[in-house]
C-alpha cells in the first residue's frame, strides 16, 4: 500500500505547491524587479482570504465574485503600499524595504484581527465526493484549485515572455539603469508589478483558504516557506519559484508519511540545504558574467 500513500501525498503536495506557487511567484517577481524580499506577501494573502469570507458572509455574494473582489482589492492594497511607502525607498538599501515590508505585514494583520478577531473562518465550497482509483484519491475541488493556479501561472509567463510589458519588466529586473536609459518608464513597470503581485497574493490566499482555515496568521506562517521555495528555485527566476514550491511542497507531504506532520517542514528544509550545497544559485538560478 505504500505506493498508494505515496501517490496521495504527491497529489496533495502538487495541489498545495501549485496554489502556493502564486505567492511564491509574487515574492520572486518583487525580488527580481524591485530588488527586495517582500515580507508583506503572506499578509496580503491573508487579506485576500478574509475578503472572500467577508464577501460571502456579510454581502452574501457568490464565491466567484468574492474571488474577483479578493484579487482586485488585494491588488489595490499592494498598489497603495507601493505608492505610499516602497516608491520612496527605490534608491535605498533592500534592507530598508524589507524592514518596512515587515511593518506593513504587521499593520495588515493587526487591522484584520481588529475587525475579524482571532476566530477561524472557512471558505465553503460545495462538497463533492473524491474520485477513488484503487485507493488513490483525487478531490475534484483540488483539480479546480490546481486548474485556477496553473491558468494564472501560464498567463504570467505569457505576460512576461510574449508581451512588450513583460519585456519591459524583465529589462528592469535585469538592469534598471540601462532600462531607464532605453526610455522605459520604471515607475509604470513598478505599478504593474505591484498590481500583479497583489492579484496573485489575493488569489493564492483564497485558494489556500479553501484548502485550510482562514485565520489572521494564515499568510505570515507561510512566509518562511515561500522565501525558502524561492531560494530553492533560484532567486528572481519565476519558473524556479514554481518548481521550488512544488519540490518543497511534495517533499513535505511525502515526509509526513514517516516523520509526522510536525516535522515534515524540517525534512523540506534539509532538502533545501542539500540542493544549495550542490547548487548554491538554486535549481534554475543563473550566475552570469556580465560586463
Amino acid at each position: 500500500m505504500i505506493w498508494v500513500d505515496l501517490a496521495n501525498a504527491t497529489i496533495n503536495g502538487i495541489v498545495i505547491g501549485l496554489l502556493l506557487a502564486l505567492p511564491a511567484l509574487a515574492v520572486t517577481l518583487v525580488f527580481g524587479i524591485a530588488r527586495f524580499p517582500n515580507a508583506a506577501t503572506g499578509d496580503f494573502m491573508t487579506f485576500g482570504a478574509y475578503t472572500v469570507v467577508a464577501a460571502k458572509s456579510l454581502l452574501a455574494l457568490p464565491l466567484a465574485i468574492g474571488v474577483a473582489m479578493a484579487c482586485a482589492l488585494t491588488a489595490l492594497l499592494s498598489l497603495f503600499f507601493y505608492w505610499w511607502v516602497f516608491r520612496a525607498l527605490v534608491r535605498r538599501s533592500p534592507v530598508a524595504s524589507l524592514i518596512v515590508s515587515i511593518g506593513i505585514a504587521l499593520v495588515v494583520r493587526s487591522t484584520i484581527t481588529f475587525f475579524a478577531g482571532q476566530s477561524q473562518y472557512t471558505i465553503e465550497v460545495p462538497l463533492v465526493r473524491a474520485w477513488n482509483f484503487d485507493g488513490v484519491r483525487i478531490v475534484p475541488t483540488d483539480l479546480y484549485i490546481a486548474g485556477v493556479a496553473v491558468t494564472a501561472l501560464v498567463l504570467t509567463f505569457c505576460l512576461l515572455h510574449l508581451t512588450p510589458l513583460g519585456r519591459r519588466m524583465r529589462a528592469v529586473a535585469d538592469n534598471m539603469e540601462l532600462a531607464r536609459a532605453s526610455g522605459i518608464n520604471v515607475g509604470r513597470v513598478m505599478i504593474t508589478l505591484f498590481a500583479i503581485v497583489g492579484f496573485y497574493c489575493g488569489l493564492g490566499g483564497v485558494l489556500i483558504g479553501i484548502k485550510a482555515v482562514v485565520l489572521p496568521e494564515l499568510g505570515w506562517e507561510l512566509l518562511l516557506l515561500l522565501f525558502a521555495a524561492v531560494i530553492l528555485g533560484g532567486i528572481g527566476s519565476p519558473l524556479g519559484a514554481i518548481i521550488g514550491m512544488l519540490v518543497f511542497s511534495v517533499s513535505q507531504e511525502i515526509a509526513s508519511l514517516w516523520v509526522g506532520a510536525s516535522y515534515k517542514i524540517v525534512f523540506a528544509f534539509f532538502l533545501l540545504l542539500g540542493v544549495l550545497l550542490l547548487r548554491p544559485q538554486g535549481i534554475l538560478g543563473k550566475v552570469r558574467a556580465v560586463r
Binding site: A171, A173, L178, A179, R291
Partner: peptide, 10 residues
C-alpha cells in the same frame, strides 16, 4: 554604458 550595456537575460 561602459559595463552591463545589454540586458543579459533578454
Amino acid at each position: 554604458p561602459q559595463v552591463q550595456n545589454t540586458f543579459a537575460a533578454l
